[in-house]
Simulated scan of single mutants.
Amino acid sequence: MANNLHEEVRQILDSAVAEDGVPGIVAEVHDAGETWFGTAGVADLATGRRRAPGEHIHVGSSGKAFTAATVLALAAEGRLSPEDPVSTWLPGVVEAGGYDGGKITIRQLLNHTGGLFLTGLAPELQQSMVTDPARVWTTSELLKLAVSQPPVGEPGERFVYANGGYYLAGAIIERVTGNSYAAEVERTVIRPLGLTRTYVRPADATGYPHPHPMAYVAGALKDGVDPATLTAENWASMIDHDKPPIDVTALNTSWGWAAGGVVSTTGDLSRFLKAIATGDLLPPAQHREMWTMVAGDGVVWLPHARYGLGVIEFDRAGMAGLTVRGVSGTLPGSFTLALTTGDGGRRVVIHANTEPKTMDIPIRIIKAMYGVSLG
């Protein structure tokens, strides 16, 4: 059965390269006490270097789970509560954008129900990635970015994926502890789990430790498109996938910070996911907090997926009675998906060194790993 699973996953990886134009993709599978690692394509288009185990990868928004786990660790220490209003720790910060910091809780920042707008498509951020890719964003600039557009709803009203909520959560971590966000993630998550190849990427970083794959943007903006005109509704239609891949390995990612600034490996990410999925990292009360899902189906990019605090879970009906939990992240030149059964017994981490054009690859991986089709 293991051999059949591995062969099916390998075929999906090969298809991603041959049919979807992914430069290179890897999958690390843990099942029945065994580990299997598969690759397809290359880590570097210029040299033809193959992808390999142990590469350092930027995990993008999978880093949100590290932030949420750090907040919950501080809650377990009695230093804050997820029900604390933002204004308790950051008075006046969100009010500058017309928000009410007395009504938005830390929990709502972490489950994207605080009413903040979709920060990732803020015009100034999109423009900077095109015109000034080396720009280093400061914490104060990110906090201003988080509230640079009006609220999209009342706190608790609906789910809108907002990196800005995690910028605020990172700032709260620093205000509560007096330490840097990176230092607290190290103290509460990385060190306890022995994640020796995982770190929060420094704001001014220009590279990654070796080995690492190069990062490629599969399609650039169509000629004549103004980045300031991008919206959640039109951005996909503005991409020209026929343009050759662009090497964005040196892109500054300081805009990710507490919303997605973690560098890891497939092995470390698998260990992290198992720990947060099974309750090995957090005390029982905080573990339950992390996996309390936002009501309603389809609030994230995969069918039957719901969002907790930095994590995703598939409803049991959609997964044929299984509990399947995970994290995922996309940023220019990188896509990561990590999934596990609730007991941590069957896990998979995939990474592609470009963003996927469709959700076909993760949906096929889910079917192979867990025997269900997300139609």
Rank of each mutant, 00 (worst) to 15 (best):
D280A: 15
L90C: 09
T139Y: 10
Y216S: 08
G256P: 08
T39V: 14
V160S: 13
L193F: 06
A96F: 06
V176K: 07
D240P: 08
V29T: 12
S264P: 04
I366T: 12
E19S: 14
W36L: 13
G375Y: 05
D315W: 02
D100A: 04
E355S: 09
G21Y: 05
W137Y: 11
H212S: 13
Q149K: 15
R316E: 15
E141S: 11
A320E: 13
R135D: 02
L118E: 14
A75G: 09
G261M: 07
L221G: 10
A162W: 11
G256M: 11
V348M: 12
G333C: 08
W36Q: 14
L142C: 06
G60Y: 02
P82I: 14
S128W: 07
G156D: 10
A46Q: 07
G60K: 00
G165M: 03
H212V: 04
M369T: 13
P23C: 05
V59L: 06
S254A: 05
G344M: 04
Q126F: 05
F66K: 00
K357Y: 06
A258M: 04
R201F: 01
G345L: 04
H241W: 15
T67M: 02
M293T: 02
D242M: 13
G24H: 07
Q149H: 14
I57M: 05
E174L: 04
S334C: 09
T340A: 01
G296Y: 08
A183D: 09
T177L: 12
D360A: 15
G298E: 04
T39F: 06
A368M: 06
T113Y: 06
K274M: 00
P151F: 03
S87T: 13
Y208L: 15
M238G: 08
K64V: 02
H30W: 15
H112Q: 12
V248T: 08
A259Y: 06
P151T: 07
E124R: 15
D297P: 00
A16L: 07
P23M: 06
G310W: 00
A68L: 12
V348I: 15
L142N: 03
L273F: 00
S264L: 05
M359E: 09
G98P: 01
P244N: 11
P155W: 01
G60D: 04
N252E: 09
H287V: 12
T131C: 06
D31C: 13
G48F: 03
D226H: 05
T340Q: 00
V248S: 03
V160T: 15
N163W: 06
W291N: 11
V300K: 11
R347L: 09
L309H: 04
E7W: 07
A285G: 01
G194P: 00
H241K: 14
G329W: 03
G326N: 01
F335R: 05
G345K: 07
G153H: 10
H212T: 10
I12M: 10
V200F: 10
P356S: 00
E154I: 09
A232I: 10
A169Y: 01
L339K: 08
P213N: 08
T113V: 07
V93H: 04
G178S: 05
K64D: 02
Q149Y: 11
R51M: 15
I363A: 15
